[in-house]
Amino acid sequence: MSRTRGSNQALALAQGLGWFSIALGVAEVLAPHRVTRATGLHGHERLVSSYGVREIVTGIGLLTAKDPTPWVWGRVGGDALDLGTLAAGVAGPQRERSGIAFLMTLGIAALDVACALALRRPLPAAMASFRRRSGLPKPPGAMRGAASDFVVPADFRTPEALRPWTAKAG
């Protein structure tokens, strides 16, 4: 499949986003004052700390899940929450800092969406190719019983007492 390389890159990106989530989350939990100062959200330290917990949980999910796709979409949801919060900050007294943080978060959100799309299940065109993979020379209905010349060995047969109903039942 030609998507192998792209898919592996998306997995690597998801791993990177996982570590980024954890790093950001730890910063938000341990140093909420610094984060609120940098983003113009002074007075919202408890909210930022709770966002940090969310980031850490998402990061662990991204790094440990067999399929990181739902966790990446979880990040996209978190981005929306962050953007909403920062948008409120833009209307406040420290609008410059909040504005810069808003634009940075927008960029990260775009990266998250791109990663989630790259990880998604095969595109409709690929699904169509799976629907054509029968391995049979004719439609399945026409191949039903094509191997009926095969004689089931005696040691593989259903016990005789249990056989008759199979022919009668419907």
Partner: peptide
């Protein structure tokens, strides 16, 4: 898994 189910349908 969607693609596995699609392949199963292809096989009848």
């Amino acid at each position: 898994v969607p693609e596995r189910l699609a392949m199963a349908e292809a096989g009848g």
